[in-house]
Design a protein around this nucleic acid. Structure first.
Length: 583
DNA sequence: GCCGTTTTCGGCCCGACTGTTTTCAGTCG
């Protein structure tokens, strides 16, 4: 974490353009214009420098997809904190109609139709209309749509108030920067589910060490991210953020109490309760104010000291859960984490050849910057038209370009890869002889998501058995907060993956986190090897590896089961494992 | 909206699936 406020501004700019795209979609604007705004939103969110600096330096329009008009809108946002175009367009529709559009099967046209016929302007009103069987009276809707709407509304309801970890992290980085610069503030640390790397976040929590708690909390209340202060204590403040997620800021009473405050605010409750119980078993008292013996505060500057005082190894936030981990640690268990630098490369990234943003040269340079030894450029296969899936001819040309890059860069290895679609019947989207010419084959499902369980399982198992497939990509297909996983018997897939030595991907993109931590545990129990990949479509997303590493730590995955910790030579041997065994 | 060593205008993300229809519009990846 670091980099002050720049991430905040970029994320906020991105959200504004994304909202503009949403509302223009409702308004029936030119789809290409809408796409341009969405692209700009993605680009802005991924920038590594503050957009404000680029704009000031006249460099913003150098970025592909950002022209004069969007740059002007960025300027307007930075100056006035709002977009006139967004305000005007949004005024034409009830604000809840955007949420109605989040329902699967409901796009801008159908959301508008519902609004015009039934006057429903938000999910709650739509639920009422559906229950009263009014939806089926609207042209283009029937009993099936009505039932789908009700079912999907329940899913939508479950996730309200939860934001993706990536957005939560951006907000916490922004708040950290803000807090760190307040006078009298010594230390700031994020806590809560963000620090535990929970995949969806329902609350933000920060711990501060400060000379003057009242003045510090007063300053927090003035932060523009905060829409409303909901509670004040002597040393804490509760507020609602503009993103609808509550925030708690806790001021620790001095250095000796910082660790305890951080521990308490990081949670979860069951973990902290187990620690407190353990402390009292040892004649100590552990609470949010610190660790005490007979009423005397013991010196403990950090969490490490607290764990150590209880006779425990340090338990990093991502492994803190229901308290059982405390007892495992007492019995000698040590959490296994991927050390920085353990990951030697990424085996699933996209280039400009399909739907990525960067050239091979840019990808190579970025990977080298991260200290990697290798990078597999796995672009989409021919069937995935929307993503510019590569024809065999294009793939051949790309492979040749990779050979040339490798010849010119002997210290690094670009791997010839493809993310090959698993077709509806389990066949792959390239012929065998083409697959045989690749270093890395990632096989993924990108179509026909609604196949019944048995059919989908058979389809994926067929791919897993395929001798050319190295990795099963994003195995469950879920999109966090957006799309449910497809029906799949994962245990059956794991069985076959273990048998055929096919690796499973831990897709580290914060939109997916697929496999999830529980699924990683399950896969490990089958003896299946895993690869942590970012699925980056932009060099800035290569650092999403941190999400995957945290997920592996949460799942307690043995680093030895992670294939991309291998150095180049061993990885290349491992990639040839099937051919060696083969016929 | 953006973009262009062919274009300053006219392309750009196309095709399959779905539920509602009696021939297709809307959604999605």
């Amino acid at each position: 974490m670091g980099r002050g406020n720049c991430t905040l501004h970029n994320v906020e700019l991105a959200i504004a353009f994304s909202q503009l795209a949403d509302v223009l979609e409702l308004a029936g604007e030119n789809p290409f214009k809408i796409r341009a705004y969405r692209r700009a939103a993605r680009t802005l969110a991924g920038l590594s420098a503050p957009a404000a600096d680029l704009l000031a330096g006249g460099k913003l329009t150098d970025i592909p997809g950002i022209g004069r008009q969007i740059a002007a809108k960025v300027g307007e946002l930075l100056e006035t904190n709002q977009l006139r175009a967004l305000k005007e367009a949004a005024a034409r529709f009830p604000p809840g109609l955007i949420q109605v559009m989040e329902l699967p099967g409901i796009g801008p046209k159908r959301a508008r139709t519902l609004f015009e016929h039934l006057k429903v302007g938000n999910p709650a009103e739509l639920a009422g209309a559906a229950k009263a069987h009014k939806v089926r009276t609207v042209p283009g809707f029937g009993a099936k749509s009505e039932a789908d709407i009700l079912r999907n509304l329940a899913v939508l309801d479950k996730r309200t108030g939860l934001i993706p970890l990536s957005l939560a992290r951006a907000l916490v980085v922004a708040l950290t920067g803000y807090l760190a610069h307040l006078p009298g503030v010594q230390r700031v640390a994020p806590a809560g589910p963000v620090r535990r790397w929970e995949e969806l976040v329902g609350e933000l929590s920060m711990v501060v060490e400060a000379h003057d708690p009242a003045a510090t909390l007063e300053a927090v209340a003035l932060n523009p991210l905060i829409s409303e202060v909901t509670g004040r204590g002597e040393d804490s403040l509760a507020a609602m953020t503009r993103w609808g997620v509550p925030l708690r800021v806790t001021v620790a009473g001095g250095e000796a109490a910082f660790g305890a405050a951080l521990l308490w605010q990081t949670g979860p409750g069951a973990h902290v309760d187990r620690l407190a119980a353990l402390a009292s078993e040892r004649g100590l008292q552990l609470g949010p104010a610190g660790l005490f013996r007979e009423g005397r505060l013991l010196p403990a500057a950090g969490e490490e000291d607290l764990y150590s005082a209880l006779g425990l190894p340090f338990l990093p936030p991502e492994v803190r859960a229901d308290g059982a981990e405390v007892d495992r640690a007492l019995a000698g268990w040590q959490p296994q984490l991927l050390q920085p630098g353990a990951i030697r490369g990424d085996l699933h990234v996209h280039s400009r050849y399909s739907d990525g943003q960067n050239s091979l040269a840019e990808l190579l340079a970025a990977a080298r910057q991260l200290g990697y030894d290798y990078l597999a450029v796995a672009d989409h296969s021919v069937s995935l038209r929307v993503a510019h899936g590569l024809s065999v001819t294009d793939l051949t040309a790309k492979n040749q370009a990779i050979d040339e890059m490798n010849a010119a860069n002997p210290d690094f290895r670009l791997l010839k890869g493809a993310e090959v679609d698993i077709l509806a019947d389990g066949r792959l989207d390239y012929p065998d002889e083409v697959l045989a010419g690749l270093d890395v084959v990632v096989a993924s499902v990108h179509s026909r998501f609604h196949q019944p369980l048995a059919e989908m399982t058979e389809r994926v198992v067929t791919a897993v058995k395929n001798e050319h497939v190295d990795i099963l990509g994003h195995p469950t297909g879920r999109l966090l907060n957006a799309r449910e996983p497809y029906a799949l018997n994962l245990e059956r897939v794991l069985e076959e993956a273990a048998r055929h030595d096919t690796w499973l991907e831990v897709n580290a993109s914060p939109e997916r986190l697929d496999l999830s931590a529980p699924h990683i545990r399950l896969a490990a129990s089958y003896g299946v090897k895993m690869v942590i990949d970012t699925d980056a479509h932009d060099v800035n997303q290569l650092t999403d590896m941190a999400y995957g590493a945290a997920l592996a730590g949460k799942a307690g995955l043995d680093p030895a089961a992670v294939v991309n910790t291998l150095p180049t030579g061993e990885l290349l041997r491992a990639l040839r494992r099937k051919n060696k065994k083969g016929t």
